[in-house]
Nucleic acid binder design. Structure first.
Lengths: 150, 150
DNA sequence: ACATACTCTAGTTTTTAAGTAGATAAGTAC
DNA sequence: GTACTTATCTACTTAAAAACTAGAGTATGT
């Protein structure tokens, strides 16, 4: 569950967009510069977020990106799932419906599978209850503390 | 938190060893054949587990591997940590002591960091309370159910 | 028309995981 | 002691995924 750069970049961009919520569209170049993300890479990430329904965009002059979902309703789970694909800790957990997979020869894996299934649920629970707005607030709080302490 | 093949193989081998606990040493070739793991790859994995204090071995004729820690005292957390390295969900979580990392420019990451820290703790809690013996028992239980259902 | 900005296709580079080969050291039985 | 067996070590190779880039294409406002 190490967060990829793709997801990290995506989250940073979303945080930046959440901070400007309601202020109209933001262009990729600005986001890339502010968050220090390679522009071309960010393009692909934002596009994925748009296709996932998390962002909306307008093309052409005056265009740019904005949140399609309010930060108070957008969960970390949805964001990460959109960027990483489903974060199943074991291949055979991908489709939860399947009772056992071919890998579980001799069933050694099925014991492992059950533990990893617990892990999976625990991760999902945390990420699906963490809202983007909360992350922004916590970032601001941290910033203040650090500003004061310097 | 997708489990690598290295860890999966390692766990399968440990389960096999746990099943023969108290029955002396098991040679690599047997483990590799039974668990269908490339022998050379398994060698490296078992060596890592030995260096991590999880396995013990004896060289020479009649030699082989056995658990250095009883299956009832060996946690999944220790096993996976030995094979994967510390499974921190974010690079700057690796040393928990450090209050913030250089990546947290503008502090966007610190909000993310806190959420991922929760994830990290949740994973550790589950894996550190799951014993190898429990995994073996659950595997056997699953096996029975499936045997009956066929 | 033209500048602006997103969209799309198709790459390249870098990194990490996965797997292999073969030599060497070391213990045990006989 | 020597032949056998097994662990240990170094150094590759291959395969796959992550990270990043280039450039053409398309839509939009003025």
């Amino acid at each position: 569950m190490i967060l990829s750069k793709k997801s990290t970049y995506g989250l940073k961009a979303l945080i930046a967009l959440a901070r400007r919520e309601g202020e109209g569209l933001v262009i990729i170049s600005d986001l890339a510069r502010e968050a220090r993300i390679p522009k071309k890479f960010l393009e692909a990430i934002l596009l994925a977020l748009k296709n996932g329904g998390i962002l909306q965009s307008r093309i052409g002059k005056g265009g740019g990106y904005s949140l399609a979902i309010p930060a108070r309703e957008l969960t970390m789970g949805r964001i990460i799932r959109t960027l990483e694909g489903d974060y199943a800790p074991l291949a055979c957990l991908r489709d939860a419906s399947y009772p056992h997979c071919t890998e579980c020869d001799g069933m050694e894996l099925c014991g492992i599978r059950q533990v990893m299934s617990d892990v999976h649920r625990a991760i999902a629970k945390i990420l699906d209850s963490a809202l983007l707005s909360g992350v922004v607030e916590r970032s601001d709080a941290t910033k203040q503390i650090i500003d004061y302490s310097i």
